[in-house]
């Protein structure tokens, strides 16, 4: 089974600045988590996203497209990143997703129905 993990959290906190020991510690946790997914054979993909202020939304209708600045839904918590990984079942997916090192927020676990480049 494959699952997409969407990381929703507040953006207010920019986190530690690059170059500081706190930043290194934070990166260390993310690298260790990624390595865990790779070593366990779970890794399929994932990315950390740029701040939501950089989002552009294309509204598509039969009459044509309109392009607007900003995310589709204005919410306090935004998607900051995602993973796609494989897991034996939902229990394993929940265990893996719970270990994502975001300090607070909501982690959405959703099964992948079809992935064209699946091996």
């Amino acid at each position: 089974m494959e699952y997409m993990i969407m990381l929703h959290s507040e953006e207010a906190d920019d986190g530690p600045a690059p170059g500081t020991p706190e930043f290194e510690a934070m990166m260390g946790e993310w690298m260790a988590y990624n390595q865990r997914l790779i070593d366990g054979g779970h890794w399929i993909g994932g990315a950390s996203l740029a701040p939501s202020g950089s989002t552009t939304t294309i509204h598509k209708t039969a009459d044509g497209n309109t392009v607007t600045d900003g995310p589709y839904m204005e919410t306090k918590e935004v998607i900051g990143g995602y993973y796609i990984f494989s897991a034996a079942d939902l229990d394993e997916a929940i265990e893996l997703a719970s270990a994502v090192p975001i300090p607070h927020g909501n982690i959405e676990v959703r099964p992948v129905a079809f992935r064209p480049d699946a091996g």
């Binding site: 089974m1 034996a88 079942d89 939902l90 229990d91 997916a93 265990e95 676990v109 099964p111 129905a113």
Partner: peptide, 11 residues
């Protein structure tokens, strides 16, 4: 079925 909730004894 879709989310593969297992028939398992949980940890």
């Amino acid at each position: 079925r879709d989310a593969a909730i297992p028939l398992a004894i949980p940890d």
